[in-house]
Nucleic acid binder design. Structure first.
Lengths: 184, 184
DNA sequence: CAGAACGTTAAATTTTTTCTTAACAAACTA
DNA sequence: TAGTTTGTTAAGAAAAAATTTAACGTTCTG
């Protein structure tokens, strides 16, 4: 009867875990991470370490899928490779500090956004300036160029702000303004 | 020859715009907004206002696509409906303040994340507590339940922080810490 | 009230993405 | 060195998502 209790408890424990794993993987899905990667991370979250074969077994998916998804998880620093001697299999651990995952994921995105748009803006500004500074062009066109110029020039304020946000997260300065621990 | 200048200038102006539109829509794509929605927004960004037929014509896409995508753009507050009398067509304007779009988009996401995970965590915690408080269950299982409990309990610190972040963005308090305008 | 204009919903198609099976390469073991 | 084991790339299949065509409902107009 000890066994009976344990059996039911085990089921309940797995159910509890699965609930959290589902929420985690749905969150990741929300941010554009593939379903498989979300499930892998969620599963690893409750384990100390795993290797590719254990993941494959636990999730019932193919090994290449594990391999590629673990790689993308490493890119966003949600999974780290662990050096372990004695076995040839690579073992991995999940980053359990969500603050770190948040930082890594969003900062990467935001930096890419800033870079991409700033480059486009600089190019466009140059062209537009050439237009509205050229007196051989009709006033209407020059005015249009000027107004577009001012619009995109204005947006730089935003991109510079995003850059600062990234900075303050990377340096952890943001936690001075928004402390991690909430009293209560 | 005035015309010749203008013609070339017009081309250059369109090229400049297209460059920025592309960067904007790629950014939106990065965040999981559909390509069509990105193009629509990018196009509207340089216009005062547009109606569905103008969008369809400008982008060479179907009207239902305009309709549904404009709706999702409204949901993330990147496009607003404009009340205009005299015409039966609905006219829309693009939100040109990227700070507003940032706020609307990320806060919605983050709130959903917090809600989803907090709910799952509360449920799971309840179940796990029942396990590790039940003395008829084996020590190993109870310890495992306890350790999972502590893990997910710890993650609440993160979700509460995200909530605070959302708050500080919604109330614009964040700009006290990270001012919009950068000197220079 | 009939007909047209506009927007939306539904079903179907196309495209894109994700995953798997199969082939390959590298590193270890006997 | 031959044969395993492990991980990755490549090509193909399956699944999911985005877009279009078609049908519908509603509101305006004559």
């Amino acid at each position: 009867m000890e066994n009976q209790h344990d059996e039911r408890a085990r089921e309940k424990l797995e159910e509890a875990k699965d609930q959290v794993i589902l929420a985690i993987s749905e969150t990741m899905d929300l941010y554009g991470v593939t379903p498989a990667a979300g499930k892998i991370y969620g599963t690893m979250y409750f384990k100390d370490q795993m290797n590719l074969d254990e993941m494959r077994e636990e999730l019932g998916m193919s090994k290449p899928s594990m391999s590629t998804n673990v790689r993308t998880l490493q890119q966003i620093e949600m999974v780290k490779k662990k050096f372990q001697r004695g076995t040839r299999k690579h073992t991995y651990t999940a980053e359990k500090d969500f603050f770190h995952s948040f930082m890594s994921y969003f900062c990467q995105m935001w930096e890419r956004e800033v870079k991409m748009n700033m480059e486009a803006i600089h190019e466009a500004e140059k062209m537009l300036r050439e237009i509205f500074e050229d007196e051989s062009i009709s006033t209407e066109l020059r005015d249009e160029a000027k107004s577009h110029y001012e619009l995109i020039n204005q947006s730089k304020v935003y991109y510079r702000w995003v850059e600062k946000l990234v900075d303050s997260i990377r340096t952890e300065e943001i936690y001075k303004f928004l402390p991690k621990d909430t009293e209560k």
